[in-house]
Design a protein around this nucleic acid. Sequence first.
DNA 1: GTCTATAACCTGATAGAC
DNA 2: GTCTATCAGGTTATAGAC
Lengths: 195, 195
Amino acid sequence: MSDRRTEILRAATRVISRRGVRGLRVAELAAEAGVSASLIYYHFTDRAGILRETLEFIGERADRYTAAAGSDAAGDPRAELAQILLLELQDTAEVRENSTAWGELRASAVFDPDLREDLARATHTWVHEIAYLLGRAHPSGTAPAHAAAAERLTALLEGLSVRWLSGSLPLDHARRLLGGAIDAELRNLQRVHSG
Amino acid sequence: MSDRRTEILRAATRVISRRGVRGLRVAELAAEAGVSASLIYYHFTDRAGILRETLEFIGERADRYTAAAGSDAAGDPRAELAQILLLELQDTAEVRENSTAWGELRASAVFDPDLREDLARATHTWVHEIAYLLGRAHPSGTAPAHAAAAERLTALLEGLSVRWLSGSLPLDHARRLLGGAIDAELRNLQRVHSG
DNA sequence: GTCTATAACCTGATAGAC
DNA sequence: GTCTATCAGGTTATAGAC
């Protein structure tokens, strides 16, 4: 599917990563996609439609590369976990675009209750995946312990990601901090089990 | 200092906590403050000036209540640490306003390089304070270990805070997760020291 | 210092031709 | 499906009276 519609969605992802969800202007998106503004309204009805479909598009793309990364290290749950989490802290156009858009979606939801339900569901899915991997890495731990560790790791990742993107934290430093947290959570699950 | 100018800054804090930095409209701020729009321009020159001074105002207010909280538990570094960090996860108007505005400042800086320098400096100061308290709680640890723990705890706090404000995480749950992370970081400093 | 009125601009959205 | 106008409404910022 590489039609005009998809081109516009790709362009919207780039514009959002540059200007933010709230900084997206239909005219700028039109210029970025090389089409007229009214064509965008033809395909997406209104600004909210552009945003809704673009965020969906970004979500699908993120799922794809998360799945791809997982399969790289299949069989070693600890490596798989580290790989999937550290994947979000990389200076490539695709990761930057996705992380930026995700952060914007989160930040926008603080002021826009309409976005909260989708966001909470996506967050829950994401936490659940990580909890599952923690469970495979430490099958003896309890499910609540896995869930808490997954919530801490993903929340930390979001915090580090926005610090990186906002210029408060160099990328390699953020990666080291996240790596340290993964090790600490795994040690912690070990400790709870043996204690 | 409780003059018109300060009243406007207080009103701006409320509007930002309701609409976001990028959702602030001068007309709405004027209504909130009970003054005319042009009076705002008289005092703050332009929209950027309003934002700049308001964010400064919020920073000072946060410093004040952080300092106040620290003195409550003075003498017990561990309790002081927990108190200061958990202070940011409370459902009071003031904390909500500050957390919301801080999150917005962070989110805006992703797209506005002008904000980055101030933000990085404020972040550094904040991390440094927490590292200092960790050092007092575990004087035997190394400075880099304290710094890393402080960076993880403050980044986690920011991540949990925005999840709370965006409706993905109940407040009491966020508090428990942060409390668990504080304990884990302190245990970790212990482990590094004895290992 | 503070107001009312308004200029100047920007942005989302639509009409209508092709 | 795609374009070129263009409108309607909202927003920043200024002029000028008091």
